[in-house]
Write a protein that binds this DNA or RNA. Structure first.
Lengths: 114, 114, 114, 114
DNA sequence: TTTT
DNA sequence: TTTT
């Protein structure tokens, strides 16, 4: 799986503890959502904060590491892949959602920020 | 706007010509969707192709370049930012969609591939 | 200047305080060197640490931020560009060196690590 | 080996055919050098081209692919790791050089460029 | 030493 | 739903 064709890098904070599921074949799945906070000045010189929420999916070893190391509020750096999938909602409508399938993450702690 | 906190890189092909809109303030907006194709071998040694479609949004100069240079089938490399937004669909339901807001793109042509 | 054609991303620790120079035109230059530490297991299952040192160059606003915020031992994430240049050493020989010209950095603090 | 701590991405042209060596243990090594060409306008509005040369090292499967697919003039996209090493030159002096150890490459062909 |  |  090529990192040249599809790669996402994010630095952000977990909005909640990881949700972890275990499957029959011993595979683990963890879901986390992180917020990236970026600040900039608009045309009028006002300080604007743009917060984006991202849904991350981790499998196997990465899921285990997330379960053991991460909790709500923690800051992480991640590298992964953009992945979209469709599902059927409770009203029977087809919906789409986009997730980042994580290859790797680091727990960091932003001390100061520019 | 930090490329350290939120950055996406994709190499893929346009599924259709760019859709371009012009606004009163002379700002231009282009929307394109690209497919990234990755191949790998599964557990059984079978060759699998994973095709992902991505919605890209371009503003200003990048929108103008897309309008002038790109058409259906073209291959591009892009760098941008993950951005999610909500909207209300025709049935009055709140929906979410995730897009890549493009900072920069290159028209490339994959000659051969590994 | 394209981030698609030439981009370097590093997470590492400063080996010394930044060296800062100011020029006549008010331009500032900061030089820092950081070590990236990566650990892996070799063929024999032994834990190996690969430490690489990188020379970073910062100009203008980034140099000012480095001067104000960074000191020996700090951990940073950086995005920049690979740049090589030649110079003449004290014996009159032509030498080459490779540096990373920084576009952006974040001060981080790796709390735990995988 | 983490792509979060040390990652380089380049798009450029080979200055010569790959140099390939084979070792006793069947390991292959390929060396290539590529030029990245970036153009921008300086303060006076003049079009400037900044050409940087980069030394790339490929091992194993990547070396084989380079040997089979690449030749002088070809354009490639690569992802790898910054790596510096010292060596002793013919006059007995210690020298340093910086290389990019390639994880992955794609042969591309830039048709048009912005 | 490449390319546009 | 996070963080500064």
């Amino acid at each position: 799986m090529s990192t040249l064709k599809n790669s996402v890098r994010l630095v952000g904070n977990l909005g909640m503890d990881p949700e972890v599921k275990s499957f029959d074949n011993n595979r683990k799945l963890a879901k986390i959502s992180i917020a990236t906070n970026e600040t900039y000045k608009n045309d009028k010189g006002e300080r604007i904060t743009d917060t984006q929420w991202h849904n991350l999916v981790l499998w196997g070893v990465q899921a285990k590491l997330a379960e053991d190391l991460l909790k709500k509020g923690d800051e992480i750096a991640v590298e992964g892949k953009l992945s979209s999938r469709s599902y059927v909602d409770k009203d029977g409508n087809k919906r789409y959602m986009t997730e980042v399938v994580v290859n790797e993450f680091l727990k960091v702690g932003l001390k100061k920020q520019q």
